[in-house]
Amino acid sequence: MPRKVEFTDTEFMIAQGARLLEDGKTFFVGWGIPQIVAILEQKLYVPNVEQLFECGAVGPQSVLPFVRGTMGGPQNTYRSLQWLNMNWAFSYSASGYMDYGMLGALQVDPYGNINSTYLGGTFEKPERRFAGSGGGNQVASHCWRTVVIIKHEGRRFVPKVEFITSPGYLTGPGAREKAGLPKDTGPYRVVTSKALFGFDERTKEMTLLSVLRGITPEEVVKEMAFRPRIAETVTEIHPPTEDELRLLREEIDPSRIIIRGEKMTAIA
């Protein structure tokens, strides 16, 4: 029997992100939502993933419920394999040991370039200013595959980001290598609150791969300020499962401060 599920856009992004990674890999975890994704995926799908935090926690296994706003406290760095510092943490990604990285973003463009610095105006006189790179630039520069997690809002998907905080494929094929960035690295997936994108192997342009069950590719694309490529077969993404929602709501974020958001429904 088809059943209607209710969830928030944030819950859907987190659940999607958590289904992406492979077991037995390493994962450089960005600040905020990626921390929740990492917890959920490790609990449900890929127990043998080692996480890395830029503040020097190698292989942390966060205590639940999740403590928001911090990365280096005893809850989030619990049961790590190793406690170090920032220069060593970035050495793990710079030397090629980090398979996946995951970052939030304010804006992303067709080449997966990320802006998390400012919106509107100029750098010197912005209209709105945000936190900036943090360690995001290092994650996007050095991890083999970078996953961007971002709300599906038109103003966030722009033909050209206002500021490249963290590099995607820059201007296209070969541009990363030409800039001196490590070979064969770059954005891998863009997880949104409605869809999943990859990058075309040849052109390095963002490509729609899958959409949430009940939404059409056209609906997804018309909300974006650029037209992405569309895969030959666009697959369907299952809405958050009972297990995913239970873990998120009851164990990870019972106060629902992080997972709250716009209400969505889909048929399970």
């Binding site: 830029e54 220069n87 900036g132 790179s133 995001g136 290092q138 590099p167 001196g180």
Partner: peptide, 28 residues
């Protein structure tokens, strides 16, 4: 960036005028 600042301080600690890195590249 965080990595850039940490590296600048490492350079300060190592008594060298600069250190090279393979991030920041291509970014604004």
């Amino acid at each position: 960036t965080n990595g850039g600042l940490a590296l600048r301080i490492l350079a300060g600690a190592r008594g060298v005028p600069f250190l090279p890195t393979r991030d920041l590249l291509g970014s604004d």
